[in-house]
Each structure stands twice: as structure tokens, then as C-alpha cells.
Computed example of a mutant assay.
Amino acid sequence: MDSNSIYSLIVYSLIACCAIMACVWYWSYKIKNAGVVDIFWSYNFPVIAIILLLLAPGFEPRKLLICGMVIIAGARLGTHLAVRIVKHLHEEEPRYAQIRKEWGAVAEKKMFGFFQMQAASNVLLAIPFFISAVNTAPQLSPLEYAGAVLWAISVIGEATADRQLAAFKKDPKNKGKVCDTGLWGYSRHPNYFFEWLMWVSYFVFALASPYGYIAIISPAIILYLLLKVTGIPMTEQQSLRTKGEAFKKYQQRVSVFVPWFRK
């Protein structure tokens, strides 16, 4: 692994992501909606992938495969979030409204720092991409093919969960109800589960490259965030506030991720 190349790519990616998030923060300040950060957090991964495609010294087919995976997944999730958020652009999501309320008079200053931290997290989580993109070995490994297959399963699963939830919410008869159909009948958060599985696939892909084991940091961080910080805890707190007893019964009946992730 060429350490000079990887350090340069990290710096370029960090500059790009921080610049994008600075612009997004200014937009969010104008419209008073910090939820737009989620859209561009997703889109920043394709930005990093394009930088790697153009500048990384690795084996071209490997770069095309890993960067193509990242661009497709990031663009899909970012666009899905954009469609949802833009519909209510002048109505801030409750979780961000609550954060803004807690921060009080210094909310915008802290929000700028939060946006920059999101940019830094993009680069930190992109470790599997950097490791793979600088690998010059002239052939693809079975681990890379396995990672690509697992990635396809995760993207299809996440897209299916998102589509099922959107269809459920679109039906006026379901207002105030908890979505428990399709994948949502097996997991309270199938979208989050497949999102985590996608990061596992990037780790598996990176294992074929020197120092690929370092890439375990990405799925580990994502799992921690989803289970303990900004993912499931905040989502379920909001569901309990809006759906009350119906969501409590759903919690008792359906596992947090899949059956072996029982809570």
C-alpha cells in the first residue's frame, strides 16, 4: 500500500467533503432545516469515489468496481433522502429541531461544527475505499467478488425496505399506524440493517488488499452509531412520541434488526 498516495487522497477527499458541507450548512441556515445534511452526507461518498477513480494508482478494474459500488449506493440513498426531505423542506425533522432547541442561542455555530464532523465521518468511513483503490495487484480476488455480491444484496434489501415504508406512509389509512408489512414485519429497522450490511461488504472487499483488516473500523462505527447514537435510538424515541402504545407493542413483537439482534 502506497502510504503517500493514500494520505494525499484522504486530504483531497477531506477538503472536498468539508467544502461541500460548509455550503450545505449555509443553505440549512437560510432555510432553517438541518435535515439537508443527511442528503449530502450520502452524496459525499460518490464524491470521494470520483476522486479515487481519477487519482488513485490502483488496478483499474478494481477501482471501477469499488467506486462504482460506492457511487450507485450513495446516489441511491442520497436521492431517496432528497425526495423525502425536499417535500417538507421548510419543516425541520423533529430530531434536528430537538437538537436545535437543546443548543439554544449557539445552535447555528454548533450546527456548523456538526456539519464539518459529518464531512470528517465521510472520509473516516471511506477507509475501505482508499485501501482498495490503491491496491495495484493485477487481478481481482474471490474476496472482492464476494464483497460485490454481498453489496448487491444489501443495496437491494435497503431499497426494498425504503420502498415498502414509503408505500405504507403514502396510504392515508395508515396515518398514525406502525409499518409492520414486508421486511418491516421481521425487523423494526430493515433499512438500517441493510445499510450496515453494505459496510460489511466494503470491509470484505477491502480484505483482498494489503492492510485490508483496518477496514473493519467502518462497519464497526456504523453499527455503533445505528444501535447507540443517531440511528435507532433517535428514530424510536420519535416513534414513541408520535405512535405511543402502538409502537411499544411493535417493539415487543419485532426485533430491532433481525432475530439475532433482539432488544
Rank of each mutant, 00 (worst) to 15 (best):
Ala19Tyr: 02
Tyr12Lys: 15
Lys170Ser: 09
Arg241Ile: 09
Leu125Cys: 08
Arg76Ile: 00
Ile72Val: 10
Thr242Tyr: 12
Leu240Trp: 02
Leu54Gly: 12
Lys243Thr: 10
Met117Gln: 11
Val149Tyr: 11
Leu54Cys: 03
Met111Gly: 07
Tyr211Pro: 05
Tyr12His: 09
Ser5Ile: 00
Asn4Ala: 08
Leu65Thr: 11
Ile99Phe: 02
Asn4Pro: 06
Ala126Arg: 04
Tyr224Met: 02
Asn4Gly: 04
Val204Ala: 15
Ala208Ile: 05
Ser218Cys: 13
Ile222Cys: 05
Leu183Cys: 13
Ile6Ser: 12
Leu183Glu: 06
Lys249Gly: 04
Ser132Met: 14
Ser141His: 15
Met21Ala: 12
Trp41Met: 07
Gly244Trp: 03
Ala119Met: 15
Ile216Ala: 13
Ala49Ile: 10
Ile221Trp: 10
Ala206Thr: 08
Trp199Asp: 06
Ile99Asn: 05
Phe193Asp: 03
Leu53Asp: 07
Arg62Val: 00
Ser3Trp: 15
Ser13Glu: 12
Phe40Asp: 03
Asn33Gln: 06
Leu183Asn: 06
Met198Ile: 00
Phe194Val: 01
His90Gly: 00
Trp260Ala: 09
Asn122Ile: 02
Pro57Val: 04
Leu125His: 06
Asp180Gly: 06
Met117Lys: 05
Ile66Trp: 02
Tyr211Ser: 07
Ala119Gly: 11
Phe257His: 03
Thr230Val: 08
Ala119Ile: 13
Pro57Cys: 10
Asp162Met: 01
Leu65Phe: 01
Leu54Lys: 13
Pro128Lys: 01
Asn135Arg: 13
Pro128Leu: 00
His189Trp: 03
Tyr192Ile: 00
